[in-house]
Amino acid sequence: MIKKHQPLRRFPDYKSSIVRSPENEPLLINFSNSEITGPLFNKNILNENDNNLILNFSKNGEKALGQEIFVHGFVKDENGNPLKDVLIEIWQANAGGKYRHQNDPSNTKLDENFGGCGRFITSSDGYYIFKTIEPGAYPYPNRGIEWRPKHIHFSLFGSMFLQRLITQMYFEGDPLIKSCPMVNSIPDINARKLLVGKLDLSKTDKEKILGYRFDIILRGKQQTYFENKIEGS
């Protein structure tokens, strides 16, 4: 059972996947109520600045350091219909590639005005927008020390658990993308491109900050099972 546009669970080039992936194939079952329902999040959980990472952790109104960017796009289903009320949570390293996290071993400095997380809920046309700074690339142990391409982690809740997604957005033109084992764990080369935010100079923002466009597609109720049956027989 392979969905070629989704990453392999076991991809030895990404070393920690070797001991963190099951040895048996997952059991394909029909989804039931628990998959076609899910938690909904109301806009009243949001503060005004939750989607502005330049300011949402600020001390005394000072901005986070780094190249200011906005990241925006639409969340849609597989048929291209906009998905409203999708909760998006993002998290990222600071401009120097360091996370505000006790387990980040990097000795790069923290930015006292940068927390590194944000939230937003899509509007009726599926639109979302974050303001943030461009994260730095950072080294991590894999096959020796390797470098993660610059990325922002994205977590999304659609209207049912089937649509739950955690992914990462990379930045157009980053030369580290093509050697990243996490990206390369996706067998379909074209699908890898879907994770790359595209430079977007179209939006005239009064603050004139650099834009990236990243659209996200959440799956629908079509079953992996049936697609597979048909392909295989």
Partner: peptide, 19 residues
């Protein structure tokens, strides 16, 4: 289907910051 669903990626070791 007109589109394929966006590929998943690992949440990584620092998922706590966002979640």
């Amino acid at each position: 289907k007109n589109f394929i669903d966006t590929p998943s990626q690992t949440a990584g070791p620092f998922l706590h910051i966002g979640c």
